[in-house]
Amino acid sequence: MELVPKIETVGLNLYYGDFLALKGINMKIPGQNITAIVGPSGCGKSTLLRCFNRMNDLIEHTKVEGKIVIDGLNILEPDTDLISLRKKVGMVFQRPNVFDLSIYNNLKFGLRIHRMLDGKDEIIQSIRGGLEQVGLWQELKDKLGNNARTLMLEQQQRLCIARVLILKPDIILLDEPCSALDPIATLRIEELLQALKQEYTLVIVTHNMQQAARASDYTGFMYLGELVEFGQTNQVFTNPKQELTENYISGHFG
């Protein structure tokens, strides 16, 4: 059965100045699944991820060719509304980037930027919903005024995910979301991602092969700016089609 892709890239090239960082990427990412992108450092996986909400626009001298189609629309078109694109395609980073504000204000921040809610009750409801989704409400409901930086790293990362969720995105991009966390916290975040995939499309970049194997439904393997292989995670990790993939995932290089 051919899945209708949530995100599709067609002949995607990306240049940093003269350097071709992504080479003709053709990829179909299915909706409501977790897709992992793996590959050695510098292979272009984070660059690819940042294309999906046009974060690369913020870097000077980048040039993009090809198409990135999300829900049928090419987001590389010049008239794309970047504010609403980044609301629809949220992002979580390597280190939890909470703001130096209270937990409450961290969550309210995005709502205010996107002018989503006005009434205080509505805001509280929305914040509660976000914290519940990431399993933090019980722990934090009486501490919403505390500075978010006082939280443990795992809680901070959960808070960052909640901050994305309350903007009601469709797609969540995660760039090495567990690399600052210990193994137990990592597993708990992975469990959270499993729960979230019922409603959202998740794309996760990771250098941790075991994490990709454990936590994803689809895996793309990138090498030197090219997408070498893309397939169901079970297939990629038990019977990869490309020798390069096999050598990389079995630790023979990289």
Partner: peptide
């Protein structure tokens, strides 16, 4: 079983 060994360590 093979899938679990390969993906879940």
């Amino acid at each position: 079983c093979i899938n679990l060994i390969a993906t879940q360590q």
